[in-house]
Amino acid sequence: MYQEMKIIDFLNEVDSPSPAPGGGSVAALCGSLGVALSRMYAHLSISKKRFKDLDETVQIQFLRTFQMMEAKRSELLEAIDQDSEAYNTVMEAIHMPKDSDEQRTARSEAMQKATITAIESPYHIMELSTEIMSTFMDIIPFGNKNAVSDIAVGVLMLDTAVKSAGYNVRINLSSLQDDALRTAWQKRMEEQLSKSESWKTLLLREAEKYL
């Protein structure tokens, strides 16, 4: 749905009174743009003589990472729609009837289930983005240094995706009634934020060697 829109149409949809697509979908878009920029860096590298002169093992790993990133970019694109669908699930639960005890119980259970979905969706964006960043040392040192600024921006976009999706996890955590479950999700979210910050620092330091 949203992933197939023209850029201007998607921007207009975000810039509207509708609450979806919102921050989670935009985080997924940031991540997919980060992957696209990183793949552009690879595209501009693999045809160069310098790349072809590299050790065969390095070339193979570079190309494996390049191919993996295409699949992850597709997952992040799908997450644009998935996050909006997760929000819609929460809204459906909120609007369930609550006139009787049975209805209130059913509504409460539906809201908790929908809240978990609304946490899982942006967390998936966080996890995907950090996973992609963790492979970039297979790419940055061996690519076309004339385009190293592009993969640096790609790193920043992926880190932005992680941090942005993290806010969407946090806002939904407050709706969880299960304290242990909320604490577990909080810990998982913080671990992804820490990983992303570490990878961003390392990767930008590597990229800046060539600027």
Score class of each variant (00 low, 15 high):
L37Q: 07
R170L: 15
K49S: 12
E191V: 13
R182P: 02
S47P: 02
E13V: 00
V148P: 05
S196Q: 01
M126N: 04
S129K: 02
S74N: 14
E120R: 06
V162N: 08
L76F: 02
S74L: 14
E208K: 14
V90C: 13
D99I: 01
V14N: 11
P122D: 06
D55L: 09
E191H: 01
N172E: 06
G24D: 01
E70Q: 10
K49G: 11
I171Y: 09
T65M: 05
S121N: 07
K200N: 05
L202I: 05
I132P: 04
S175Y: 15
I7V: 12
R64N: 15
T105K: 15
Q67M: 07
M157S: 13
Q59F: 03
P122A: 05
Q192H: 12
L128N: 14
E102P: 01
Y2R: 15
S174G: 12
V58L: 14
V35A: 09
I140G: 00
K49D: 15
S74K: 13
T65R: 00
L193N: 14
S84N: 08
N144T: 03
Q3M: 12
E191G: 01
R50V: 06
I125K: 05
M189K: 04
A161W: 07
Y2T: 11
A42N: 02
M126F: 01
Q177M: 12
A180Y: 07
S32Q: 11
Q192Y: 09
N12I: 00
S194N: 11
E78S: 14
T130M: 02
A71Y: 08
L11W: 01
M5Y: 15
L156E: 13
E75H: 14
L176G: 08
L156R: 09
N88K: 10
T57A: 14
S18N: 12
P141K: 04
A118F: 07
M69N: 13
I46L: 13
S18E: 11
A36S: 15
E85A: 10
K98Y: 03
E13A: 14
Q82T: 13
L63S: 08
E75W: 00
A20S: 10
L193C: 03
F62D: 07
S198H: 08
A27C: 00
E78I: 07
R170Y: 13
Y41N: 04
K6W: 09
S194D: 13
L76Q: 00
A79R: 07
M1Q: 08
Y87T: 08
L176C: 07
F10Q: 02
M111E: 11
W185L: 02
E56I: 04
A27F: 00
V90W: 00
L44H: 03
T160L: 14
P122Q: 06
S45L: 00
S108C: 02
A36Y: 01
V148G: 06
F10M: 09
T160Y: 03
F51W: 06
M126E: 12
D179E: 12
H124A: 10
Q67G: 08
I140H: 03
W185E: 15
E70L: 09
T117K: 09
T117A: 15
K163G: 11
M1E: 06
A180R: 10
W199D: 00
M189H: 08
I151V: 14
K49W: 02
L173Y: 09
M189W: 09
L77I: 06
L11S: 05
Y41V: 00
R104K: 15
V148C: 09
E70R: 00
A28L: 08
K145E: 06
H43Q: 11
A20P: 04
T160S: 15
P97T: 08
T130N: 06
S129P: 08
R50N: 13
